[in-house]
Structures are given as C-alpha cells and as structure tokens.
C-alpha cells in the first residue's frame, strides 16, 4: 500500500483565516489522483480523529483539473492561543505523510 507522501508531489498546510486550517494534497498526476479517489482513506471522521476537531465541520474537495485534494477544518484552538505551537499551521500536514492508500 503506497503512502500518501509517495502519491503526492507536494503536501502543505496553512491557516485559512485564524479559525481554519486547510491542507492541500497535490498528487503527481491523474493516475495517482484517481487511485486515491477510488477509496480515500482521509474521510471526515479520520481527519476529525487526527486533528481533534468535529467531523461535521470537515470539508473535503476534489479538484480534478489540478489533481488536488483539499481538506479544511476548524483549528482545535484559534490561532495564537496561549499554548500555540504553530502560528501559521504550516507543519500540520505532517501526520498525513504516512497515511496508507489502498
């Protein structure tokens, strides 16, 4: 089972405003994108589990022309709370690198 980091040329995360995070999975091409789309391991529930947020708020988009999957969800706490460790959310993508895709 290939890992997401092998299927993608780039994976990134960033705040989308102070209350949301958005993660973009840039697949190498249509082959890898379609392979992922057949049985996507990153469901709303899985994202909620990894990022400690509510599944009902997770939004997942398939951007076919760009071979991109976009995943957005509310930050567990708004940007800049007293225990902030990643102000931009720029390192939040890392737990997804080893996700296995069937």
């Amino acid at each position: 089972m290939p890992k997401l980091s092998k299927l993608c040329r780039h994976i990134r995360s960033k705040n989308a405003g102070p209350f949301w995070v958005t993660i973009d999975l840039f697949f190498h091409g249509s082959e890898q994108f379609e392979f992922y789309r057949k049985s996507p391991p990153l469901t709303e529930e899985k994202i909620a589990d990894i990022y400690d947020t509510e599944a009902g708020n997770v939004k997942i988009f398939f951007v076919e022309d760009l071979h991109v999957v976009k995943i957005s969800f509310p930050r567990p706490a708004p940007q800049g709370w007293y225990n902030e460790r990643d102000m931009h959310g720029g390192q939040l993508f890392v737990p997804l690198l080893d996700i296995e895709v069937e």
């Binding site: 989308a16 958005t22 988009f61």
Partner: peptide, 16 residues
C-alpha cells in the same frame, strides 16, 4: 494555467 488556477487553493478553505 496550472499556477494561476492553483492559486484558488491558497489560504482558502473552499477552492471553488
């Protein structure tokens, strides 16, 4: 076309 359309993803929770 690739770099221009990809910018719709940037810091946006909804790409559409």
């Amino acid at each position: 076309p690739q770099t221009v359309s990809a910018h719709m993803l940037y810091e946006n929770s909804d790409p559409f």
